[in-house]
Nucleic acid binder design. Structure first.
Lengths: 345, 345
DNA sequence: CGTTAGCACTCTGTTTATTTGAGTGCTAAC
DNA sequence: GTTAGCACTCAAATAAACAGAGTGCTAACG
């Protein structure tokens, strides 16, 4: 059976009405919602076809219809007219994000908040990470006589610090040796080379200085690891409680969201930028059963030219796709721009 | 009417049974739970007295009894035998926290996680803050030609950093001037003196250098402010969903917890350390109506000798006080010790 | 042939009535 | 002061009845 224009119009009307009301949509209520005039019986016939084609579902025999995952997908790919954000809205978002633009972590937290507020869903953002990043700069900042802060800056503009403590005094002499080692072994090389293993072999060759140096180098290695590791920020989980579809299993969903690994798996298995369009996973399109009554919309922001992190939302499948997809797209772009600004020298 | 030993035993039994089962406790089921043998009628008489005295409540006529806030309070103050944590448990907590002991933020996050896991409640921790802190050290770490990181260390061991960007190059000359200004105006003085107002008057007196210097000084002021501001970390909110008492209003409660100010108000209005014992606020003992069906247990950790921050939990009033109060007490002590360690030079 | 009116049928959600049982409060006797 | 006994209360569970939204099907229509 093939799709006709009228079927498309009916499908679109059902999706939109259902998104709006949350109630299964009946044939009668569609009669007036549609532009052209047909009887409810005709619509029923068409709806029966749409069910057969897999675009609609029936909660039970004598109930209205609701869109299936496939129905939503057809809708977002062929039927919906994406909402255009006004420049005012854009301006507000922009200025909110610029407030704390120097700290990536803060920017992403804010982004999460904005997303959660805008969408009434749970928002997820991941901090930038880049496995190919190279160490650009290392600094050792003295804090106390035996305490210092290690600072790493990578080529992708990621800045991480860590405080470490040693057993003996960090003299100027020590600091100098530290910088020498860093210069010859690490600057200009991938951060991933700063492994514990390498540190250990290096420490062995240091002789008596090894004792003071090792903690510093270990801290350095830890910090380097931080530049590679993505961290997940979860905002607005409480919004999930306002959707009836999660009444019963809100805990399971929230618990799932806290286990970062599976989500990371999802994010990383969709690495190809779809021309900058956010990726949408609807209901049973999700791999994890915990998500199969939800929709995820996410997108990768780029720092410079590298896809560095993800931001997205999780909500019910019944969600205003036409508005949210463009919003997430825009936020992704802005975050990319702001964080890229940070990178330049 | 005065309290008798038998009444106490009955009250304790009711509280404990109710905490365990969540069902109103009837007179019959108490007969065998009590050590001595009396009939259910006698217990009923006693329970009637306890209601009159305000220690018990009745959800409706012909139902069992549940403890009132006052009843819980009497229980924790006179009747319960505090649970002693085993040294194994203590050891586990200790080592978990030591893992990331250098970064206070990380320690508190971990603490929150541990608390949430242990108690199945929502856990709140606040970062250390001290209004009387004195600026001990300031560093300017070069990041790029026009970017630098400002570092502040206070007398209470709080370390904060902020990246800032200027419009012109940060030369060695500029850095020197910066250090001079800092040395003469800020080191050894309270962090609170680093106000924007003061920065502004200072900037005016700088002449041509003002242009480069102002962003640096503003960043410095911002960073100083960060040392004073407490930040709230909320962990394990989802646990609240597992308590029937929050079935209907979980959203309201979670939403309340996200508005940091009211909670801060609560924390700061109980500043006196009650001999190191955690503060317990049960049901209607809470000022905010959003909390009146919950119990808060919190306690202040000290860095050095100053009370610096708070950690605690929020859960239903029906909670295992005998176990949780000592746990929170212990955690508070450990966190204090770990963070104090960081402070020493 | 697609469209439509008509109608019996299905299923849910709501209301109302009935029953059950745990638990109480009270009284009178011990 | 304690207890057995008993009538009473109330929430929760079960059942029955009802209303109404919506369908599927059939037969008629243009």
């Amino acid at each position: 059976m093939e799709m006709t224009e009228r079927k498309e119009k009916i499908l679109a009307a059902i999706v939109e009405k259902y998104i709006q009301t949350g109630e299964p949509v009946g044939s009668k209520s569609l009669v007036d919602a549609l532009g052209f005039s047909v009887s409810s019986a005709t619509i029923r016939n068409e709806m029966a076809d749409l069910i057969e084609m897999g675009y609609l579902e029936q909660p039970h025999t004598s109930a209205g219809r609701i869109p299936s995952s496939k129905g939503y997908r057809y809708y977002i790919e062929h039927l919906m007219t994406a909402y255009e954000m006004s420049s005012v809205e854009k301006g507000i978002i922009n200025s909110k994000l610029r407030e704390s633009s120097a700290d990536p972590q803060a920017v992403l937290e804010k982004t999460g908040n904005i997303l959660a507020d805008m969408t009434h869903c749970a928002a997820i953002t991941t901090t930038p990470a880049d496995f190919e990043a190279i160490v650009k700069k290392v600094e050792l900042v003295p804090i106390g006589t035996r305490t210092a802060m290690v600072v790493i800056l990578t080529s992708t503009g990621i800045l991480k610090t860590k405080v470490c403590r040693t057993n003996s005094e960090i003299t100027i002499d020590v600091a100098e040796s530290f910088y020498n080692i860093v210069k010859t072994h690490f600057i200009g090389k991938p951060a991933s080379e700063l492994s514990i293993a390498k540190i250990q072999t290096l420490a062995l060759s240091l002789g008596e200085k090894s004792l003071v140096m090792t903690p510093l180098l270990v801290a350095l290695s830890d910090t380097a690891k931080m530049t590679e590791r993505t961290e997940m920020l979860l905002e607005g989980q409480r919004n999930l409680l306002n959707h009836r579809e999660f009444e019963s299993n809100a805990f399971e969903l929230m618990d799932f969201l806290h286990r970062a690994e599976p989500l990371n798996m999802v994010f990383s298995s969709y690495n190809d930028t779809d021309n900058g369009m956010p990726k949408v996973l609807i209901g049973n399109e999700n791999i994890f059963k915990e998500l199969q009554s939800s929709t995820m919309i996410f997108s990768k922001y780029s720092i410079g030219n590298h896809e560095s992190g993800t931001l997205g939302i999780i909500g019910p499948t019944r969600i205003d796709y036409a508005r949210l997809i463009p919003s997430i797209k825009y936020l992704t772009e802005v975050v990319g721009i702001i964080l890229s600004d940070n990178m330049e020298d």
